[in-house]
Simulated scan of single mutants.
Amino acid sequence: MDELLRRFVQRRRVSAVTAALVPAEGPVEEHVVGVRRRGSRDPALVSDRWHIGSCTKTSTAALWGRLVELGHAEWDMPLGQALADLDGDMHPDWTGQTVDSVFWCRAGFKANLSPDQMKQAWDDSRPLADQRTDAARQALGDPPDRPGEVSYSNLGLIVVGAAIDRLAGATFEQALDTHVLAPLGIESAGFGPPGEIWGHPARFRFGDFGLLAGPPADPSDPFSDNPAVFSAAGTMHITMADWAKFVRVFMVGGSNLLRDSTVDHLLQTPHGGEYGMAMGWLRTRTLPGAAYVMQGSNTMWSTAALIDSDRRHAVLVACNDGRNRVLNGTARLAARLLTDSGGTRQ
């Protein structure tokens, strides 16, 4: 595996990449190649934490599933019920939209906060629960945009975080630790850029497209990640070993954190579809060996996680570079490693 990772570093011109082969049971195989930031001689280590971006959404979904099991939430829970105190502020067209439809990216939320809201969020030092409430109130005050159609949304997960603040009797971050991370023995997870490894944005960015390798992003700079209010949508950092513990929740025989029926619901695509967006995961047939995939990027990091159709083999890949070609490359690298490790797809 080290040779594949070395070729990835050279061809993609990144400073470091790491990968983990995760069987449902047994030891996890971890590898890392490269240095912690471009221009540094400090080697990246298997014990380092990596920013996983939107792969965070699967942990938010797992938390929602656990809250359903505990009786604090429900499948297909209407947004007006999950955010009862904001019901009077909701546009009437949100009637009928549920938390499930938010995870499926079919509720009609815009992709992100507006540019002005983003600027304000980076400067906002209020408690995150208050910030999520304001974001939810503003989002729900406007009518949904093409509900029922798939439209990927970080904003929708911020709204789910606001619902969890209300239903869990604790903040989203506290509830995630209490009900998901701590029971799995995960201690390295946190939010925002990790301190030891630095992310790298593209040198030039045109909308969603990044071009050429850029300089390292100092994690003390608030712009080195999305605003903190995005925590439920995509700002988690974690070691590969701990990420493997979490991904095993979705693998057969990998964990007893959630009931089998809960995991099945989280992996189910809407309306009985064979492929499409599930709750944090994408059911796919486009990557060799993979049946379920999630990817994440805050434009400075790139990650991919793949599980085979038997749900007995998974591969995790993370890289501290957020260019589009790197993000696409992490998925292809993960697929190669999954196929080589014996992963199967129907």
Rank of each mutant, 00 (worst) to 15 (best):
Asp165Thr: 06
Val160Ile: 15
Gly190Tyr: 08
Thr178Ala: 04
Asn112Ser: 12
Ala162Asn: 04
Arg146Cys: 12
Ala107His: 06
Val160Arg: 09
Asp145Asn: 12
Pro115Leu: 01
Asp145Gln: 12
Glu149Asp: 14
Trp198Pro: 11
Ala121Gln: 01
Asp124Met: 05
Ala162Val: 01
Gly185Thr: 02
Gln131Asn: 02
Ile158Lys: 03
Gln117Tyr: 01
Asp142Leu: 10
Phe191Cys: 01
Pro143Asn: 09
Tyr152His: 15
Gly161Lys: 03
Arg146Tyr: 13
Pro143Gly: 08
Phe103Leu: 14
Trp94Tyr: 09
Gly96Arg: 11
Leu176Ser: 04
His179Gly: 11
Glu173Trp: 06
Pro194Phe: 07
Gly185Val: 09
Glu173His: 04
Gly156Trp: 07
Asp177Ala: 13
Asp177Trp: 07
Ile197Pro: 03
Leu176Cys: 10
Ala111Tyr: 00
Gly141Gln: 12
Asp116His: 02
Phe109Ile: 09
His179Thr: 08
Ser153Trp: 02
Phe103Ser: 11
Thr178Asn: 03
Gln117Glu: 11
Gly192Lys: 08
Asp130His: 04
Ala121Cys: 01
Ala107Asp: 06
Trp198Arg: 13
Ser153Arg: 02
Pro144Ala: 13
Ser101Cys: 11
Ala121Arg: 03
Ser101Trp: 14
Asp124His: 01
Thr171Phe: 06
Asp177Glu: 15
Ala168Arg: 10
Asn112Met: 13
Gly190Val: 06
Phe191Gln: 02
Lys119Thr: 14
Val150Lys: 14
Gly141Thr: 13
Thr133Leu: 02
Gly108Met: 13
Asp177His: 12
Trp122Thr: 03
Ser101Lys: 15
Ala139Arg: 02
Ala168Ile: 09
Gly185Pro: 03
Ile164His: 00
Leu157Thr: 08
Glu196Arg: 15
Trp198Val: 10
Val180Cys: 09
Asn112Ala: 11
Glu149Val: 14
Gly156Val: 06
Thr95Leu: 15
Arg132Ile: 00
Phe109His: 09
Gly156Arg: 10
Gln117Asp: 08
Gln131Gly: 02
Gly192Ile: 10
Asp116Ala: 07
Thr133Ala: 00
Arg126Trp: 05
Ala139Ile: 03
Trp122Gly: 04
Glu173Gln: 10
Thr178Cys: 01
Pro183Gln: 10
Phe172Gly: 08
Trp94Ala: 13
Gln138Thr: 12
Ala135Phe: 04
Phe103Arg: 13
Gln131Ser: 00
Ala189Pro: 05
Ala189Trp: 07
Gln117Gly: 03
Pro183Ile: 09
Trp94Phe: 11
Ala175Phe: 00
Ser125Arg: 11
Thr95His: 15
Ala139Phe: 06
Gly169Asn: 10
Arg146Pro: 04
Leu167Ile: 13
Asp93Ser: 12
Ser101Gly: 14
Ala163Arg: 06
Leu140Gln: 07
Trp122Asn: 05
Leu157Ala: 09
Gln120Arg: 15
Ser125Gly: 04
Leu176Thr: 03
Pro127Glu: 02
Ala107Lys: 05
Ser101Arg: 15
Gln174Gly: 01
Leu128Asp: 02
Asp145Cys: 09
Trp104His: 15
Asp124Gln: 04
Lys119Asn: 12
Thr171Lys: 03
Thr98Pro: 07
